[in-house]
């Protein structure tokens, strides 16, 4: 019975599952960069007494980091697509 289960078509569809995994990652990657940037900026402001300049600066860095994460994700998608296309041709 286990053998049958392991050979069932759900496991054949690996590309779809990989894509589901990849897609579910994007949202938090965008947000977490911003949150960490904000936190570092706030903390540095409290520490150095430079309210509110470092918070703004690091918020911008955080936003940049968030979008950079998205850019890297997109690049990864593209690489996976090109490799699978090569597999199909070969």
């Amino acid at each position: 019975m286990l053998d049958k289960f392991l050979k069932s078509p759900i496991f054949k569809d690996k590309k779809t599952w990989d894509a589901v995994g990849n897609a579910s990652v994007i949202g938090l990657h965008l947000v977490s960069g911003v949150l960490v940037g904000l936190f570092i900026g706030y903390w540095l402001d409290v520490w150095l007494g430079t309210k509110p300049w470092l918070l703004l600066l690091f918020l911008l860095f955080g936003i940049a980091a968030g979008f950079r994460n998205i850019y890297l994700e997109a690049k990864k998608f593209q690489e996976e697509n090109t490799t699978t296309n090569h597999d199909d041709q070969g």
Partner: peptide
């Protein structure tokens, strides 16, 4: 450098929260 550092520090946060 700050962007990379922030995006590296954001990784454990996003792993945890997800």
């Amino acid at each position: 450098l700050p962007v990379e550092l922030i995006s590296h520090l954001a990784r454990p946060l996003s792993l945890t929260l997800r």
